[in-house]
Amino acid sequence: MKKLLLIVLLLTFSINVSGQIKSPQPSPFAKIEQKVGLTDITLEYSRPSMRGRTIFGDLVPYGKTWRLGANANTKITFSTDVTIGDYNVKAGSYAIYAIPSETSWNVMFYSDANNSGLPKNWDDSKVVAMLTAEIYPMPMNVETFTMTFDDLTSSSAVLGMLWEAVYVGVKIEVPTDNMVLTNINDVMNGTPTANDYYAAAVYYLQEGKDIKQAKTWIDKAISMAGDKVQFWQLRQQSLIYAKSGDKKGAIAIAKKSLAAAEVAGNADYVKMNTDSIKEWETK
């Protein structure tokens, strides 16, 4: 009996000791949070490394579904509805899987995002988007599997996937324009502030919308700001005037912005205004 108790105590001690040891994971977890327009996108995945292994066509076989990383499936979460290829994808969380080949990947967004790797029973009805993404050869090996958000605009981003000498990108589009225009319409039908007029005007300028409307709003914003107007606000007003074809007005406003930027010691705006004035005076 004493011998049996001794064995049990030794086993318990060894288990407790091993449970106290912390070591690095071979495929560490990563989480990326990216704002695209007005949409929040969160990406969670694990990052295996090459470690001298051949990846595609060997460790990751061609023609078979891969979980895009290691450990639990890669998960992406959208705060709004998005568009992926020809598919409208609702706000929520999705697993991402891929079937690599030598020239392209079939990338799939799967509505069940809580799998330990691949689903035990694959269900085609849970594939909410599937598209073919071309492979772009890299000039060097990327040691650790990496996912990125590239080519950011106010309305889209490219979900990049890099490993070994391969880059694959999938474009994700977000409904920023509809959301902003709805918001602008609601605010303008209420009691807009100077900041509201300014934000609406700048958005119209940046997105190439009705420049006359942008000019009306920016003038209203500057008028309401009065002597508290800032050099960066005057900068945007000058750009709107120039875009509307009023170069003379744009130059006059840019000179005000330049003077205010010099007082504030902002070299970036001094240079931008100086360059714009020179450009507009020659046209």
Rank of each mutant, 00 (worst) to 15 (best):
N106D: 15
K64A: 00
T65W: 05
D150M: 09
A113W: 13
A95G: 15
S156Y: 03
V89Q: 12
E173Q: 10
I76N: 02
T132G: 02
F78V: 07
M161H: 01
D177C: 01
V82I: 14
N71Y: 00
L162W: 12
A113M: 13
V166W: 13
Y94A: 07
K90E: 14
E102S: 14
M138Y: 04
I99S: 06
A72Q: 14
S154K: 11
S104F: 15
P119V: 10
T83K: 15
V158Y: 10
N141F: 02
D112M: 09
T103S: 12
A91E: 09
M179G: 03
S155Q: 13
F78L: 06
D112Q: 05
M140P: 00
P139K: 07
Y97R: 10
N141A: 10
V128A: 05
Y167M: 04
F145P: 00
Y97K: 12
D150N: 15
F149W: 04
K64Q: 09
K120S: 14
P119S: 11
N71V: 00
S111P: 03
D151M: 09
W122F: 15
S156R: 07
A72E: 14
F109E: 00
V107R: 02
Y94V: 09
D177Q: 13
A129W: 13
L118A: 06
V158P: 02
K64P: 00
G160I: 12
I135N: 11
P100E: 08
D150Y: 12
D81T: 07
Y87Q: 09
N121K: 10
E102Y: 02
V142S: 10
W66G: 01
S93N: 05
T65A: 03
D177S: 06
T77V: 08
N121I: 13
D150F: 06
V82Y: 05
Y94L: 15
N88A: 15
S125N: 14
A70D: 00
A113P: 10
L68K: 00
K75T: 11
N106L: 15
E102V: 11
T103F: 08
S156I: 06
I172A: 08
G169W: 04
K90V: 11
F145K: 00
D124S: 13
K120T: 09
K90R: 14
L118R: 03
L159Y: 12
V174K: 02
N106H: 09
T176S: 14
S125H: 11
F145I: 07
Y94H: 09
W105M: 11
T74P: 00
T77G: 06
M179Y: 05
K120W: 03
L131P: 02
F149Q: 04
E143W: 03
Y110K: 10
W122R: 01
T83M: 08
N121D: 14
A113F: 13
E143C: 01
A157G: 03
T83F: 08
A98Q: 06
A157P: 05
M130D: 13
S104N: 15
A95L: 13
S116Q: 10
V166G: 02
R67N: 01
I99W: 02
V168Y: 06
S79Q: 04
W66M: 01
M138H: 03
V107K: 03
I96R: 06
D123N: 14
S116L: 12
G92L: 09
D124A: 14
M140G: 05
D86T: 07
S104L: 08
